[in-house]
């Protein structure tokens, strides 16, 4: 069986309607990803619902981060479409893509903070750019965002002066600066100790519950996947396509694909 559909995602073949269907935030259809002549993944088709916590799973090198780059506008697909709120993302011009990305926040692996700026300047830069708020107001909001991730008081620090885990949290504060509708996490638990990882999971659930934020995470951290993910796809580097989708817990119980089972059980058969 090539794909496992859980009942929740339903039939995804209806052309036209799923893109605008109530509740679908991001729809991907027949996406092919390549680097030059090297194919990473092909025929990716899935929906991400509004307010859902969606995991992109797979072993190292299967294309999770690459898929994320296609969703956030950093890499154009070789073929296929990405619809965000019903708009064909890659058929639209750069200006439209930039507008759509204003409602999104991205947490890169390692945080990707701008190293020549303090934490406050990092978080504040998007606020300065896209809101008409005064410097004082921005300062207040920046302090709030930093305190939400447990970094209150670190406004004046540079990224090189704080630990890796703190840089990640600061990166999250920056991603949340404009209260985005959708948050993308690239390996959110990478480099975090178990307690910080769990706190991040709790923050993710809190964001979803309080703000209705859609969360998309590319990860292979099983604890987080089972703790927070409601829907997922599994990318396989050998067949270069998705071989499973649905709630990870359901996949754990019902999937018959040995690779999926091996992944979800951490290799224990």
């Amino acid at each position: 069986m090539k794909r496992t559909f859980s009942e929740e995602t339903g039939d995804q073949r209806d052309q036209g309607s799923p893109m605008n269907a109530a509740g679908v935030h991001v729809a991907v259809r027949d996406l092919d990803m390549v680097y030059g002549t090297f194919v990473i993944q092909r025929d990716l088709t899935f929906d991400i619902k509004r307010g859902e916590v969606f995991a992109i799973m797979g072993g190292s090198g299967c294309g999770k981060s690459t898929l994320m780059r296609h969703l956030i506008g950093l890499k154009a697909p070789a073929s296929g479409d990405v619809f965000i709120n019903g708009v064909n993302f890659w058929e639209s011009g750069k200006a439209v893509r930039d507008e759509i990305m204003k409602t999104a926040g991205v947490l890169f692996q390692g945080g990707a903070l701008w190293s020549s700026m303090t934490l406050a300047e990092n978080v504040g830069m998007v606020l300065e750019e896209y809101t008409g708020l005064s410097a004082g107001e921005i300062g207040e909001i920046v302090s709030l965002k930093l305190s939400l991730v447990g970094l209150e008081g670190f406004e004046g620090f540079y990224p090189s002066e704080i630990s890796g885990g703190m840089r990640k949290r600061a990166g999250l504060a920056r991603a949340m600066a404009l209260d985005p509708e959708i948050l993308y996490f690239d390996e959110p638990s990478g480099g975090l100790d178990p307690i910080s990882s769990r706190r991040l999971d709790e923050l993710i659930l809190e964001l979803r519950d309080s703000f209705g934020t859609t969360i998309v995470m590319a990860t292979h951290e099983l604890a987080s996947i089972f703790a927070v993910a409601e829907n997922s796809i599994f990318l396989d580097p050998d067949s270069k396509t998705m071989i499973a989708s649905g709630n990870p817990r359901t996949l754990l119980k019902e999937s018959t694909d040995p690779k999926v089972q091996a992944f979800l059980r951490r290799g224990e058969l």
């Binding site: 950093l74 991205v106 890169f108 190293s115 830069m125 998007v126």
Partner: peptide
């Protein structure tokens, strides 16, 4: 180095 650290990507996705 900014490219290696994904800082340039972060700029692009923030609309700069």
């Amino acid at each position: 180095t900014m490219t290696v650290n994904e800082e340039v990507d972060a700029l692009e996705t923030s609309g700069f």
